[in-house]
């Protein structure tokens, strides 16, 4: 209910940062630094919003507003739901992990080309290939 992670997601791209709290500025600076770092070293970074010291609802919302939304949004549905949204800054992703009830388990800002959770894994792909071949080998493949 009043957990910061349960605060409604309502990005408003139009709003300027105006009188953003020092914490928002600090996070944004951090995002900028790590984005620069990524371009240099390809080292991905994750910022855990739940680990933020006492972020209140207003600060959270203004951070969300400041980052706004970009071009990409995706959703992982595997019992639980993970919402992945690129912010207005390419390579900066807002990732929301939800439990079965839709409650937020954790929220992350990931700085990388594509968050790992979206990528398919070679081992899973091999297993998928095997299943596909098996299906094709059946007398009447679907």
């Amino acid at each position: 209910m009043t957990r910061l992670s349960d605060i409604p997601v309502q990005a408003d791209p139009g709003e300027s940062r105006g009188n953003a709290s020092p914490l928002v500025t600090a996070v944004l600076n951090n995002v900028a630094d790590t984005l620069a770092q990524f371009l240099e070293s390809r080292l991905a970074t994750v910022i855990d919003l739940r680990a933020m010291p006492q972020m209140d609802a207003a600060t959270y919302q203004s951070l969300k507003n400041a980052l706004s939304v970009g071009e990409v949004s995706a959703k992982v549905e595997a019992d639980v739901t993970v919402e992945i949204r690129e912010t207005q800054y390419a390579g900066v992703w807002w990732v929301t992990h939800r439990n079965e009830q839709g409650g937020i388990v954790t929220e992350l800002i990931e700085i990388t080309e594509i968050p790992d959770i979206l990528k398919a894994h070679a081992i899973d792909m091999r297993a998928g290939l095997q299943r596909l071949r098996q299906a094709l080998a059946e007398p009447s493949p679907v």
Binding site: A44, A51, P53
Partner: peptide, 22 residues
Amino acid sequence: MSTDLPSRSDYSHMPADSSDGV
């Protein structure tokens, strides 16, 4: 929030960490 983390006024240490992702 853990007490290990910086207090409200101390933002010098952000809980961000770099790696090859997860």
